[in-house]
């Protein structure tokens, strides 16, 4: 705007042009990238666009995506949760140990989730009450929880989980012609719930406000500590849910499971346009971010690249996605 006074007079409630709104809309840009990837892969390979492959991809990123929704809420509130990978392993181990001691599936799963919810709450208390930086607090719990995973199992994976539990990760739901994996359906349900929470509720408005400008939110009378606490608690719970689905799919609760996943979970959010400075983005971005990462992995396999090169490609995508996002924000 070269003439601020002039334009402020002219712009009376004028809708920005369609092109400007499209460029400002990060979801549109992400969907465009996703669509482009799908197009290229369908042309280059015979196998990509088969129902089987698509559902395998969906199943493979659904745990990461669900944990990433919780991560997104924390990042939007201005924090970060490094403990989500450890939490994924932890919920599986708690549930697995209870199952093997003969407790019912419902009880075991609920207790497994309750424990990760408490870990999240503990993160929240450390950040909101003890005023620890989120990075430090959750770096600590990441290691503590991983230690519990090893200590409680003495390093041994928990096998022979009951069939009813495994069904959580391995069932397909019939829907018209397709058999859609249950984790993928749960992923969409949680995405909708998290979207409603963030976009439609008072708590969601306050979450964006705290992440966007914590000082201003406090001056407006928002209880910023409570908002952060809820965000971390939800992140713990959603990581736990992702962990249960992962364990049920793999059929084994290993103390080494989900090692390093916290970075994939954060990367999904970041690729999805959720700014690490807080206050921006939504869970659909995280879902698409997780999808882009998994499709990329799948593509490298289908195109015959050795699997060892995958991290390099993912890293390049993270940097590229954030650069595009920054450029987009500066441009419009």
């Amino acid at each position: 705007m070269e003439h601020p006074e002039l334009s402020s007079q002219e712009e009376r409630y004028v809708e920005p042009s369609f092109a400007v709104r499209l460029a400002r809309n990060q979801l549109a840009a992400l969907l465009f990238i996703l669509f482009g990837m799908v197009m290229v892969l369908s042309l280059l390979t015979r196998t990509f666009l088969t129902a089987n492959n698509i559902f395998n991809v969906l199943r493979a990123f659904s745990w990461i995506a669900i944990a990433s929704f919780g991560q997104s809420i924390v990042i939007i509130s201005g924090g970060i949760d490094l403990s989500s990978g450890s939490n994924m392993a932890f919920s599986g181990i708690i549930t697995g140990m209870l199952l093997n001691s003969g407790y019912s599936i419902t009880f075991s799963v609920i207790l497994g989730l309750a424990v990760t919810l408490l870990v999240g709450f503990f993160n929240g208390i450390m950040v909101s009450k003890a005023k620890l930086p989120p990075f430090i607090a959750t770096l600590g719990t990441m290691s503590i929880i991983r230690g519990f995973c090893y200590g409680m199992t003495e390093g041994w994976p928990i096998r022979s989980l009951p069939r009813g539990f495994l069904a959580l990760g391995q069932t397909d739901i019939h829907f018209f012609l397709w058999r859609i994996p249950l984790p993928a359906i749960l992923m969409v349900i949680f995405a909708i719930l998290c979207f409603i929470l963030l976009d439609r509720t008072k708590l969601g408005y306050h979450t964006y406000a705290v992440g966007g400008n914590e000082y201003a939110a406090g001056l407006a009378g928002i209880n910023t500590g409570r908002v952060k606490n809820i965000a971390f608690t939800l992140s713990g719970l959603l990581a736990g849910i992702g962990g249960i689905l992962m364990t049920a799919r793999l059929g084994v609760a290993a103390p080494t499971a989900a090692q390093g996943y916290e970075l994939d979970i954060i990367a999904a959010a970041v690729i999805g346009g959720i700014s690490l400075t807080g206050g921006e983005g939504n869970v659909w971005g995280a879902l698409i971010g997780a999808a882009i990462m998994q499709i990329l992995r799948n593509a490298l396999v289908l195109l015959g690249f050795p699997a060892y090169w995958q991290p390099a490609a993912i890293g390049a995508v993270i940097i590229g996605a954030v650069m595009i996002d920054m450029y987009r924000k500066r441009k419009v």
């Binding site: 964006y208 400008n213 201003a216 206050g279």
Partner: peptide, 12 residues
């Protein structure tokens, strides 16, 4: 109160 720092959320 209208604060000096304006107390607005830029991302909203």
């Amino acid at each position: 109160t209208v604060y000096q720092e304006l107390a607005l959320i830029e991302t909203r």
